[in-house]
Nucleic acid binder design. Structure first.
Lengths: 234, 234
DNA sequence: CGAGCGGGGTGGTCGGACCACTACGGGTCG
DNA sequence: CGACCCGTAGTGGTCCGACCACCCCGCTCG
């Protein structure tokens, strides 16, 4: 005796996923709100706890829910960062030509974000960018350089004012992704060139020059892109 | 007595996810390959079948695995379409300002893709685009118009030659997403304008003019973007 | 009044049973 | 001889009940 006429399509778990997703989509479940117990959900949906758990697992991976051991299940803030967290696996698992495609996308988005940032960045944010730029140039530890490199671009993406774009770029620049590509790249004397490119980006930001910023960012990513393309060619 | 030193961090299921993901990342599991049965995997990983199932569910949502009832579990082709399938939920669940951000991203990517398509599109692909353009203008059924509209842009994205970008745009144009935004948009006499914009895009493609194509696509998405921004403002 | 310590409730894991479906092969019929 | 049908073994899908690990909150005791 269900409260609703149960759709007969798909597996039980899939139906549960759709129903919970719909509840969130319709606003019946607010961000941050706590869901009923797994056991209660099982009763309400008329399915077993195992199936409920799989549905929750699926929604957790999608970034809609968050399970806290011993506490309960909660709806995430539903912000870009939450929903695009799993986007990074694409970058981590892509290979060959697909890596070039990803860099092409990153070039487009990164140049746009940098241009927007040039027009909107605040003094505080600019200071933060400069901090990472200096730290990047002050050390030779590849790990630390990479960390500040990531932070450098992340700060710029945030300054662009489009959180969703920043989240996507975050995924496209995930640690393992860049580590994989740059391992070979950096060994070809690209270190100095990278510094110059970063300096150029910073200069354009400080000058509040969107066009220069767009060009500098596109060139920066384009360098890596071209190198990768050459690696795959022959 | 495990075969490997088991990392002690995180839940059992999460560890299983990481291990299987790593196997795929390292190439030990090829695309299309069949995995051991859930029962065997449980034994090999030293965990219960329930946990294995949750791990598989997670990897399925990520687009890495595909479970076929009665047959087995298989690695997907690992192409952009598989991995970005769940990307659409972002578009379906975003609201308010986040919708504008998504349209901003779509404008950037769509204009780039259309420009690339103008340079690379084949005669066959162009004919396909024209087919959807004609079909779109030949009917008044909103459902059918929307379907051909989607196909129109999808064909262009494919012609751009970047499958990953096409997959992202596919998610950014998901059926429910556009239906939600356009419900109001279309009612404001935007129907005719949309036709003109589509015609302009097609003209630029036929003329193999990337710059014109970029501008037409940017204007097309920008129209909706501005309308949505205005809706949210006051 | 505060720190420590429980206990109840939550998600996490486990094992085993059964169901639904697919794939494959042997048997049958034309 | 070949195409078809059907049974069966094996797979993922679902369910159940038990127990574990952890968090939160209130109670107690110093």
């Amino acid at each position: 005796m269900d409260d609703e006429s149960a759709p007969r399509k798909g597996t039980v778990t899939q139906r549960a996923v759709e129903r919970i997703k719909a509840m969130i989509g319709e606003g019946r479940l607010e961000p941050g709100q706590r869901l009923p117990t797994e056991r209660d959900l099982a009763t309400q949906l008329g399915i077993s706890r195992s199936s409920v758990r799989e549905a929750i697992r699926a929604l957790t991976v999608m970034g809609l829910l968050e399970a806290r051991h011993g506490s309960g299940i909660y709806v995430t803030r539903l912000e870009a960062g939450d929903l695009l967290e799993s986007f990074g696996v694409v970058a981590d698992l892509s290979r060959g030509p697909q890596l070039v495609e990803l860099l092409e996308i990153r070039r487009v988005l990164e140049s746009t974000a940098t241009a927007l940032a040039a027009a909107r960045i605040t003094s505080d944010q600019l200071a933060e960018v400069e901090k990472h730029l200096a730290a990047m140039n002050a050390t030779d530890d590849p790990e630390e350089v990479l960390a500040h490199d990531l932070a450098f671009h992340r700060e710029i993406a945030v300054a662009a004012g489009n959180e969703t774009m920043a989240a996507i770029l975050e995924g496209l620049s995930s640690r393992t992704f860049r580590a994989r590509v740059w391992r070979g790249y950096r060994e070809e004397g690209a270190f100095a060139r990278t510094r110059r490119e970063h300096a150029a980006i910073h200069r354009a930001l400080a000058a509040r020059d969107p066009e220069a910023a767009r060009a500098a960012a596109a060139a920066h990513v384009g360098e890596v892109e071209e190198w990768l393309r050459a690696q795959l060619g022959p």
